[in-house]
């Protein structure tokens, strides 16, 4: 009873804070000075039409590095937690999937992977980028699991892809530091024609590496969750 009372008081306190925030909100008409700088000079400096991408990858590249690190740590911790402790064959029998989904997955999985690759290679031209593309690639893995519940990914290949792309991402950053203005600067490769795939310097390469890394990490997390033993009914 007293617990509910405290919860209500806390929620009401937050509500008053939000209400005062809301009442003081005035919708602005112009960009902030920093955003104006990005909008005016982003296209010329970075060469990417998608300004969000140029902020995520170059201007605030350390954020992305931290984000990738967090994902990596989470994937490792989940792998450590949900490790299979004992192998016993009392797993309840799973129902076989229907023939239609098996065929559909054979048709769809290559298409889904091409879609994911499109999303991360075109990250600087269209909405999307490494994180979205990587999660779409992980979705293809789920599709395979739906068709065949006993499917297991080849952990060695996934770990190899993850390590190589992670090292590649950091190397790209160091190249930027050595050959151009700073860590993760994209201008050590030519900027190219504005609006083409091979433009914006190193951004397509960096986003492809991020996409491969995120895709393998997400597949790893999902396969860890899947491998925990089902309970008997």
């Amino acid at each position: 009873m007293i617990r509910n009372f405290f919860i209500l008081i806390l929620v009401a306190a937050f509500a008053t804070i939000f209400a005062s925030l809301f009442l003081n909100y005035g919708s602005s008409e112009t960009l902030t000075p920093l955003a104006t700088y990005y909008a005016e000079n982003g296209a010329a400096e970075v060469g990417a039409p998608n300004l969000v991408t140029s902020i995520v990858v170059t201007y605030r590249g350390f954020d992305t590095l931290g984000e990738v690190t967090i994902l990596f740590v989470v994937a490792s911790v989940i792998g450590f937690f949900l490790k299979k402790t004992k192998h016993n064959n009392e797993e309840p029998a799973k129902r076989e999937s229907s023939e239609i989904i098996v065929t559909a997955s054979k048709v769809l999985v290559p298409i889904i992977i091409v879609l994911g690759i499109y999303v991360f290679i075109n990250g600087h031209l269209t909405p999307g980028g490494g994180f979205q593309g990587g999660s779409i690639v992980a979705t293809a893995f789920i599709m395979l699991l739906m068709a065949n519940p006993a499917f297991e990914i080849n952990h060695r290949i996934v770990h190899a892809v993850e390590s190589i792309s992670g090292i590649g991402f950091v190397l790209m950053g160091v190249f930027g530091l050595l050959l151009a203005g700073g860590f993760l600067d994209n201008r050590f490769l030519p900027l190219g024609t504005f609006g083409n795939i091979f433009s914006a310097g190193a951004i397509p390469v960096i986003y492809s590496l991020i996409g491969l890394k995120v895709g393998s990490e997400m597949s790893n997390i999902l396969s860890n969750f899947q491998a925990v033993q089902n309970e008997k009914m």
Partner: peptide, 18 residues
């Protein structure tokens, strides 16, 4: 649109699956 795509792929897709 960037955020919309991320939310559709990650926020609703993968977290519901997990």
């Amino acid at each position: 649109p960037d955020v919309a795509m991320t939310e559709a792929a990650i926020g609703s897709g993968l977290s519901t699956i997990i």
